[in-house]
Design a protein around this nucleic acid. Structure first.
Length: 311
DNA sequence: AAGAACATCAACCGCTCCAAA
DNA sequence: CTTTGGAGCGGTTGATGTTCT
């Protein structure tokens, strides 16, 4: 096999000229990109299809925001990277108008260095001087995350069955990307975490510190709020001022609160949220049984319309 | 002022995934 | 079931710009 490199076909490489950009944009605006391989000839470009696709998706597409990353975007990238690792395309789906390439570059040139300077390992997102207890918490979370993602890889039916079992609904559980058929379904565990962050964060007295991140990641649509408020106190949840609160009271909730109080770093507070999330929803016995894992989640959160909309 | 060192980021490469034949 | 080719992903490169000595 092996495809011929573009230079063997006499195709141009390197930086794009404004004339090439103009041709590419004009063609796509009129015809759509269609088959990328066929596009260059039709558009009158001496480029390979791959180069055209890259130029379009990373630079010319109209729905791209360029320029400096905001603090909020930075925090989101760091938190998503802690959760997803170097899965840039997955991270990009959660940061509007930014491309995976741009996020990857920004991580490699700015954020990674900054974290290193702060004494934080950019791979594990742990302080290099972290004590073993933190390590074990994060190991616990990582195991939980990998387990959940492994289930997703095995197939969406796993979660779907739970949903059917508890709610007899027909809403799809896996978000399918509208952009690409190839895209991996977005990890449910991430979305669940987001929802859970919204809940646990609302219990903090110092909510303002993370308010922006909370609003962004939970992404409660204003249109959902009415529905949510109508379901006040369903499953221990209630809605007010755009955030989700919980009435759940248990020794574990106290543990969550105590854990949160230990967190001193704004960005890395999510480490503790992960731990809180893991501890609260997943005890050792339950977690070995995937059914209990998901049924716990749906039991605690599933009747909330906004939460369901996440799926 | 000059050139060395460093930073940035667009673009490329090689690989995998997946649908269609 | 196997093969093929299009598309997308993540890692890396290299041209260009900026800062430092």
């Amino acid at each position: 096999m092996g495809r011929s490199p573009s230079f063997e076909k006499g195709l141009k490489k390197g930086p794009w000229t404004t004339e090439e950009d103009r041709k590419l944009v004009a063609y796509i605006e009129e015809h759509g990109h269609g088959s990328w391989r066929a596009l260059p000839a039709k558009a009158g470009l001496q480029r390979c299809g791959k180069s055209c696709r890259l130029r379009w998706t990373n630079y010319l597409r109209p729905d791209i925001k360029r320029g400096k990353f905001s603090l909020q975007e930075e925090q989101t990238i760091i938190q998503l990277h802690a959760l997803l690792g170097n899965r840039w395309s997955a991270i990009a789906t959660h940061i509007p108008k930014r491309t995976d390439n741009e996020i990857k570059n920004y991580w490699n040139t700015h954020l990674k260095k900054r974290l290193t300077k702060m004494g934080i390992d950019p791979i594990t997102h742990k302080s290099r001087t972290a004590v073993n207890t933190t390590l074990s918490h994060m190991t616990q979370w990582e195991n939980a995350r990998l387990e959940a993602e492994a289930r997703l890889v095995r197939g969406p039916r796993v979660a779907s069955n739970f949903y059917q079992q508890f709610h007899h609904g027909s809403a799809p559980l896996i978000k399918k990307s509208s952009v690409s058929s190839r895209s991996v379904p977005q990890p449910l565990c991430l979305d669940v975490l987001k929802a859970w962050q919204g809940i646990t964060l609302s219990k903090q007295t110092d909510l303002s510190r993370l308010e922006n991140f909370n609003k962004q990641t939970l992404a409660v649509k204003s249109s959902d709020l009415t529905d949510m408020q109508a379901e006040n106190h369903t499953n221990g949840l209630n809605i007010s001022n755009g955030s989700v609160n919980t009435d759940l009271e248990s020794p574990k909730d106290e543990g969550v609160q105590n854990t949160l109080e230990l967190a001193s770093d704004t960005i890395y507070q999510d480490d503790y949220l992960m731990e809180a999330f893991t501890n609260h929803l997943v005890n050792d016995g339950d977690y070995e049984d995937g059914n209990n894992y998901w049924s716990n989640i749906f039991d605690k959160l599933g009747n909330n319309s906004s939460f369901l909309s996440i799926f």
